[in-house]
Amino acid sequence: MSKAKELAGLIRRAERVMVFTGAGISTESGIPDFRSPGGVWSKMKPIYFQDFVSDRDARREAWTRVFNKSAGWVGAQPNAGHHAIAELVRQGKVSAVVTQNVDNLHQESGVPDYKVIEIHGNASYAKCLQCGMRYELEELRAPWEADEEIICVNCTGLIKTATISFGQSMPEVEMERATAEAEACDLCIVLGSSLVVYPAAGIPVMAKRAGAKLVIINREPTDMDSYAHMVLNVEIGAFLDEVMKELEAA
């Protein structure tokens, strides 16, 4: 039996599937990952949350990266992997997509917002750190170009992209939702995550401990491969295309 047919069978028999995605699914759309040679952090140092809050120069640099698109986190198109997940959500097989990615590609592929749990935030818009008011990035271009402080019109709090920066607290609501999904699913499919960044990487472990089958699909081996029911080191989009064909043929 092919691995695609085997995974299709697991999906078909599952009652509740949770998909957990990392940078590896989006590299196939041309978005760089963070830690590999040539990745984001090999080209620029991360700006820590406490520095953003306390240092105007750090804020200026952060916004310059946003408007110059230095990190390359946004502007790409969903690939076959994203579209396969969206179709599984549409069919009612996938109950939630828990993602470490900040690129908004799951939503752009057709997954409803309420089905996407972004545990590291979203780079495609900004939020006030004080009152939580949402801002579209283009709304903030004018004050950046004028070298003004970018602050909230509602409460004068600092505005920051809606990503979770190093040193910033994990989003409580999203982590609670992700934990609940992990404990409720009977199949957890990890796509493109090295599973080394915690606490996010602990979510598939929770699913496994709660009795779910764990499938890991990633280009490189992970430290959690020995816990998985199935491990594949393949290109995600092409493999999920095969899986979807197997599901359609059944």
Rank of each mutant, 00 (worst) to 15 (best):
R59Y: 02
I216T: 09
A123H: 09
K43Q: 11
T161Q: 14
A96F: 01
I236D: 10
G211W: 01
G192C: 08
I31Y: 04
G237R: 04
E172H: 08
Q168A: 11
I236Y: 09
M1Y: 00
I189R: 03
S42Q: 14
I236T: 10
L10D: 01
V97M: 04
A62F: 06
C152F: 10
K245M: 06
D147C: 09
G30P: 14
S36A: 07
V190T: 05
A182C: 08
G157P: 09
V153T: 15
N233I: 08
R60M: 11
D113L: 14
G81Q: 01
A228C: 13
P32K: 00
T179L: 10
G167C: 11
G81T: 02
I189N: 04
G132S: 11
P46F: 02
S226A: 11
S26V: 10
E248N: 03
I117D: 04
A76K: 08
V97W: 01
I164C: 08
V215Q: 03
R60K: 11
V234G: 04
D113E: 15
R65A: 10
A162M: 02
E246R: 02
D241A: 00
E183N: 13
V19M: 05
L247P: 10
N104H: 15
V116Y: 13
A58W: 00
N122E: 12
E172L: 13
N233W: 04
R12E: 12
V17F: 05
A212I: 11
A180F: 00
V173Y: 06
E235F: 05
L232N: 07
M224H: 02
P143W: 12
A238I: 07
T27R: 04
N218P: 12
S70Q: 11
V102N: 05
L158R: 09
V111I: 15
A86K: 01
R13L: 03
W73M: 12
R65F: 00
K3N: 15
G132L: 11
I189M: 11
L137H: 14
Q91I: 01
N104C: 09
A178S: 08
G81M: 04
S169Y: 03
F49D: 08
K3I: 02
V197I: 11
I217G: 06
K160V: 09
D147V: 07
A8F: 02
A80P: 06
V243R: 02
Y198V: 08
V98W: 04
E61V: 08
W73R: 06
A250H: 07
E28H: 05
T99G: 07
S193H: 03
I119T: 14
D55V: 10
S95A: 14
I159E: 07
V74M: 06
N104R: 13
Y48D: 14
R60W: 04
